[in-house]
Write a protein that binds this DNA or RNA. Structure first.
Lengths: 192, 192
DNA sequence: ACCTGAACACCGTTCAAGT
DNA sequence: ACCTGAACACCGTTCAAGT
């Protein structure tokens, strides 16, 4: 088997979409590639570096899509981010648990900051606002994937009675736009 | 050694604050309690149930503090939530990865929903808004604890040059209030 | 340069057996 | 009722050895 970093990362993504992050081990990944676990360590220093590579790969996909968008605003960035995160099961957890300043990802962070500036955020709150926008999308996709899994335990009857038919599950796109609007309008309203 | 669920949970919290979630295993926990790992399984079905118990214990602390607050609004809830989460290292990750509908935690969720209603959120967006508020605080504390750890790798020079001295790190309380204001005003602005 | 065999030091979990 | 010894099936990682 001829390995390289990208082959390994793509195989890992396939495994994530089939089984989820918990089932992804260096050994299962090696097995899927018909290779021994130790071989992976020739291409990646350790598992963390592999995860970092996956986040970086996804960031590259996002940047590629952004190139085709002129006059990008935060609304569009958030939508593309959500869509690409959804393509990889458990990607929000991977993003949360890896070092963020890899090349493509850094460029996305810088773009996010610029878009915050465009929304009128003052300089001293750029990073807070940027983190908040990023965390909103990550958490939203994490919740979506959690419910898509369908393996959760039930809500207690007490709760289900009080909040019947939560529309977000039926209308995830509308709910995402609602949350996004909350964030964007909130940022605008909080600018002096 | 005389064990019970609470003793185990408190020992786990101590270990979290000393070493973090990654170092917390059933075996290290047992060692800290001067007991064998298998003993823990008499009190908890598995590690997940133990983590769930820790989140539930923290939720109980929050509820206790909320009892002393009259006319609680979301601003106050968010502050108390943040403070209690900060008392336990990696608590945001624990909350994210456990089943949420345990008794005390369910009551907090119901309260959160009610406070969203007080802010004027329409019925069909209650759960989205509630999740968003919850995720905001969780993510914020996760970031705070990440930076408090101090073991992160450096930002690239390119980035540090563009965004010098991020005030959020120096002024975490002010930054939290900023984010909270963004959320609250955004919710109000997005109500028809 | 790239891969493997074999090992090391860990995990979570189970369960018959002890008290 | 509560705890343990001993095992099972896993992990991530290293490194001398092979090609």
């Amino acid at each position: 088997m001829k390995l390289d970093r990208q082959t390994i990362q793509l195989a890992a993504i396939t495994l994530l979409n089939e089984e989820g992050l918990e089932k992804l081990s260096m050994r299962t990944l090696a097995k899927a590639l018909d290779v021994k676990a130790a071989s992976l360590y020739f291409h990646f220093k350790n598992k963390d570096e592999l995860m970092e590579g996956i986040a970086e790969l996804i960031s590259g996909r996002i940047r590629q899509r952004l190139e085709k968008v002129q006059n990008c605003d935060f609304y569009q960035l958030a939508h593309i981010l959500r869509e690409e995160l959804k393509r990889v099961n458990d990607s929000p957890k991977i993003f949360e648990n890896t070092y963020p300043f890899t090349p493509n990802r850094t460029k996305l962070i810088v773009l996010g900051m610029k878009l915050m500036q465009d929304l009128g955020v003052d300089k001293q709150h750029l990073t807070v606002a940027g983190n908040m926008g990023n965390n909103f999308v990550l958490s939203y996709v994490a919740d979506e994937q959690y419910f898509a899994r369908g393996t959760q335990r039930q809500m207690p009857a007490e709760f289900a009675a009080k909040f019947p038919s939560p529309i977000d599950l039926a209308n995830p796109d509308e709910a995402f736009d609602y949350g996004l609007a909350v964030f964007i309008r909130g940022v605008q309203a909080t600018t002096k």
